[in-house]
Amino acid sequence: MGDILLAPPLTDETVERLKAGDRVFISGDIYTARDTAHKRLVELLVRGEPLPFPLNGQIIYYTGPTPAPPGKPIGSCGPTTSSRMDAYTPRLLQEGLKLTIGKGARSPEVITALKQYCAVYCAAIGGAGALIAKCVKKAEVIAYGDLGPEAVMRLTVDRMPVIVINDVYGNDLYRQVIAAAAP
């Protein structure tokens, strides 16, 4: 099987082709957001105010990088635990967010919302922040600079590897591997 390459903005047709267990490489611009940034984004949506970046067809990566050392675009930048964003994710998917990247399992509400809004959840390699940093060509804070490591950044990535955990068909790779191991 050849490599699956993705470049945002993503369409429903592209997302529908992805299956739990697929290895995917992402190139292009993606956005970082963690706990507090998610809280602020959803508060803006509730108040009907514009967001600092477009969500339609886009990718959010749950990470809070280490500061960029001299001569590098970014520091270490592996994924953080996704479940902390579960409370906010369905609302963002409703706005057209197509793919989220983190680590660890999602809530039943998020898995249902992925099906409803045609989106997928992928995992990056947890604790491999130095390796993932090599895929980041450019990083720029675009919102919430006051949050320090939790600021929203636009990352330009080249062949960033991720694995599809939850697809639009309700499959869950984490559940599949546990079920396969059950005696």
Binding site: T63, G64, P65, T66, P69, K72, G75, S76, C77, G78, T80, I125, G127, A128, G129, A130, L131, A133, K134, P149
Partner: peptide, 19 residues
């Protein structure tokens, strides 16, 4: 990949993990 990550961290003086 995790062993690769440890090698890259050491070579480039980057933290192993962002956390």
């Amino acid at each position: 990949l995790l062993l690769d990550n440890a090698a890259v961290a050491r070579e480039e003086s980057l933290p192993l993990c962002q956390d």
